[in-house]
Design a protein around this nucleic acid. Structure first.
Lengths: 265, 265
DNA sequence: ATGTCTTTGTGAACGCGTGCACAAAGATGG
DNA sequence: CCATCTTTGTGCACGCGTTCACAAAGACAT
């Protein structure tokens, strides 16, 4: 899960559970597909299958929004599409800026899912002066200097950061100072933001590493081994590789000079 | 959170909690930065701050890996980098294929985070014959016909899907049939896979919708309203908009012709 | 060698999310 | 108008994840 939004503790007074909110877009997508096929109603079972979730979970999720189903029949597709859209705030238009128009930023700008779901790319912003004026996805790129102006003029409250990691925090700070209160971060960094600002992160590298973990686990199970940690035996005897640090911590160089070829950068 | 991997129930016998696994890459990144600055040791407090998590959580996470810290001192940075890398399976090389070399696929291919973390782009695959042979990020694109061959020859077990939604399931099926057991899906679709195959999804549109929800909530709180659902009063009286479906479900058209301008597609 | 001080590792409590299983609601047919 | 059948809405229990708070462990100074 590009997981990790800045944790708002008790503010979610009587609202919808976070886990439910995260699934609403999934339901909406499935419902939209049904709507296009002019399917009038759908049962929780069918919809759950289409969204890839448990039907009881789906019904409970919908129960937080209110009682929108009809017993013995199911849910009215159009009505549900509207209710979920409204709940998610998609009945209004959200201007969005994308900062950092490299490979990824350009891909995001070209992504169709933006405009089709209540989001509008208000501006593309890049620090490279050579990019300025160049159209990407039909929108001319603007220079970072104009960031505050753009945010203010367009009433932008959602910003997408697609810059290198080094620039992300600085860009973030400027976005927040200019009035942005929701940030989608594609840069591989932890962003620090003031209270009241939401951050969600999407991190390819993290996702791959999680997959690698499970992949290794699977490979281990095949051969009878259970992975690197469960090497049999009550005490985990550290492998021969980098020795456990035994010297007093004043040894500044660390236990072993040649750590394996991990993390070249 | 690009959440949602296919749920492996009890297989995780005595392993590391999923939530912990998801944070390990975060710790690893912070530790790598410290390592580059030649910091020898770090306390749970410092590292937790760098990774943006609670220090108690971090200590508990590390406790699942074993006791790698020294009381009164902290953790040895190099040693911890090695342990986490090993746990995540990054001490070995993971060949990866990217299928669908559009804007996004190209951006992913160019992403530096791949090679630097134990992952190697083994091949780029696209269905468009015009793309074949064209180099992207220094790697020639190959045609979908060769997918099975490539997977087999390179022993690829991780696949990245960056195709349009319509093609994703089909590509997924072919990847799985060819031996891939971990999939990172960027296409906005729910993928169905057999047991034993892990899927993680990254979905820009969903992340934005979640942000929009909170954004709307914030805007509502400012004006004293608490959002669309909590409209005051015990019973949620449906708003004037699309009327609640009252007609019998045989009314195929739905309750109201003009659903607001949501979901053009 | 002994005391003090720092920091880890973890027991325990709590809250959230999930899934089961069933009663209530309503449609449908006779 | 009543019986039957389908499907929703939810009470309940369970398990995972988070957080607090503290005892144990070890470094460091004297």
């Amino acid at each position: 899960m590009a997981t990790g939004r800045t944790h708002r503790p008790a503010t979610r007074s009587r609202g919808i559970p976070e886990a439910t909110v995260a699934r609403l877009p999934l339901y909406l997508r499935a419902l939209t597909a049904l709507s296009e096929r002019s399917v009038p109603t759908v049962s929780s079972e069918e919809l759950a299958a289409a969204a890839g979730v448990n039907s009881a979970k789906l019904r409970k999720d919908f129960s937080y929004l209110g009682s929108y189903g009809t017993r013995g029949v199911g849910y009215d597709v159009e009505y549900l599409v509207y209710q979920i859209s409204r709940e998610l705030g998609l009945t209004q238009d959200w201007p969005v800026v994308i900062v950092g128009i490299g490979n990824l930023g350009a891909a995001l700008a070209n992504y169709g899912g933006f405009a089709s779901r209540g989001f509008r790319v208000a501006a593309l912003i890049d620090a490279d002066p050579a990019m300025a004026g160049k159209p990407v996805a039909g929108i001319p790129v603007q220079h970072t200097d104009e960031l505050e102006q753009i945010i203010g003029d367009n009433g932008v409250s959602i910003g997408v950061i697609a810059t290198p990691a080094g620039a992300a925090q600085q860009v973030c700070d400027r976005l927040v100072a200019a009035g942005v209160t929701s940030i989608l971060n594609f840069a591989p960094t932890v962003l620090t933001v003031p209270d009241g600002v939401d951050v969600r992160k999407v991190d390819l590298s993290i996702e791959l590493q999680i997959l690698a973990f499970h992949e290794q686990r699977k490979a281990g199970e095949e051969t009878g081994q259970a992975g690197p940690e469960a090497m049999e035996g009550p005490e985990d005897t550290a492998p021969a590789s980098p020795a456990r640090p035994t010297a007093t911590a004043t040894d500044r160089k660390g236990p072993d000079g040649d750590v394996p070829a991990v993390m070249p950068a």
